[in-house]
Amino acid sequence: MIRRLERAALPKALEDLTGLLRDCVQAGASVGFILPFPVSEARAYWADRVFPSVGRGVELFAACDGAQVVGTVHLAMAAMPNQPHRADVAKLLVHPEARRQGLGRALMQALEARARELGKTLLVLDTRSGDPSQALYQGLGYEVAGEIPNYCRNPLEEVYEPTTYLYKVLA
């Protein structure tokens, strides 16, 4: 089941989100963090950086298996006055044990539906070039805008990798 996490539900979801982020990074997800990646750092990301912005320009979607959060993605509204039509997609995470079940696609479809409800006509995101998520995004109609070499460090080893920027015009 995919649902939007409202501010009141965030404290209850903190431990699931913390574990999800940590497990994804340990499995090699390139989402801004590198190993070693302590639980305290994962928890602080959610509690200190994401939670304060939910309902204030960021919407957080969760894929749930029963009561447990096994996937998530953020929809972040563009902040500048000349970009009211645009939003960013960030931190699509699916627990390594829950992958290949359509959760990433379902999360993205829920995010896109909400973006349309909010009057957004352009979504932008970036991903590690060649990552399986790139194929997912392109399969959902995202177009490659370009690639930046040596953009980010691999989470598992000291190697710098390119990132690909993609966009989708919502109809």
Results as ranks from 00 to 15, higher is better:
2 I>E: 10
3 R>Q: 14
4 R>L: 13
4 R>F: 04
5 L>E: 00
6 E>R: 14
7 R>D: 07
10 L>M: 05
11 P>S: 00
13 A>D: 09
14 L>W: 10
17 L>Y: 08
21 L>I: 12
22 R>Y: 04
22 R>D: 02
25 V>C: 00
25 V>G: 02
29 A>Q: 09
29 A>W: 05
30 S>H: 01
31 V>P: 04
31 V>D: 04
31 V>S: 08
33 F>H: 10
34 I>W: 01
36 P>N: 09
39 V>Y: 08
42 A>Y: 03
43 R>T: 09
44 A>H: 07
44 A>S: 13
46 W>I: 09
50 V>H: 03
53 S>D: 13
53 S>E: 15
54 V>Q: 07
57 G>V: 12
58 V>R: 14
61 F>A: 10
62 A>D: 11
62 A>E: 11
65 D>P: 04
68 Q>N: 07
68 Q>K: 15
75 L>I: 06
75 L>S: 08
77 M>F: 13
77 M>Y: 12
80 M>Q: 14
84 P>G: 12
84 P>C: 03
85 H>T: 06
85 H>F: 09
86 R>N: 09
91 K>M: 13
94 V>C: 09
97 E>G: 08
97 E>C: 10
97 E>R: 15
98 A>F: 13
99 R>W: 04
99 R>H: 05
100 R>Q: 13
101 Q>R: 15
102 G>E: 04
104 G>E: 00
105 R>T: 14
106 A>F: 02
107 L>D: 10
109 Q>A: 11
111 L>R: 07
111 L>D: 06
111 L>Y: 07
113 A>L: 06
113 A>N: 11
114 R>L: 01
114 R>T: 10
115 A>E: 00
116 R>W: 00
116 R>G: 05
116 R>Y: 01
117 E>S: 12
118 L>K: 11
121 T>Y: 00
123 L>H: 06
123 L>D: 04
127 T>W: 00
127 T>Q: 01
128 R>P: 04
130 G>C: 01
132 P>M: 00
133 S>I: 02
137 Y>H: 09
138 Q>V: 05
139 G>V: 06
140 L>H: 09
142 Y>D: 12
145 A>R: 14
145 A>I: 11
146 G>C: 08
147 E>R: 14
149 P>G: 03
149 P>D: 04
149 P>S: 03
149 P>I: 00
153 R>M: 12
155 P>S: 11
155 P>F: 10
155 P>Y: 12
156 L>S: 06
158 E>T: 13
159 V>H: 05
159 V>G: 03
159 V>N: 03
160 Y>N: 12
163 T>Q: 12
163 T>D: 14
164 T>Q: 03
167 Y>S: 10
170 L>A: 05
171 A>T: 07
171 A>G: 15
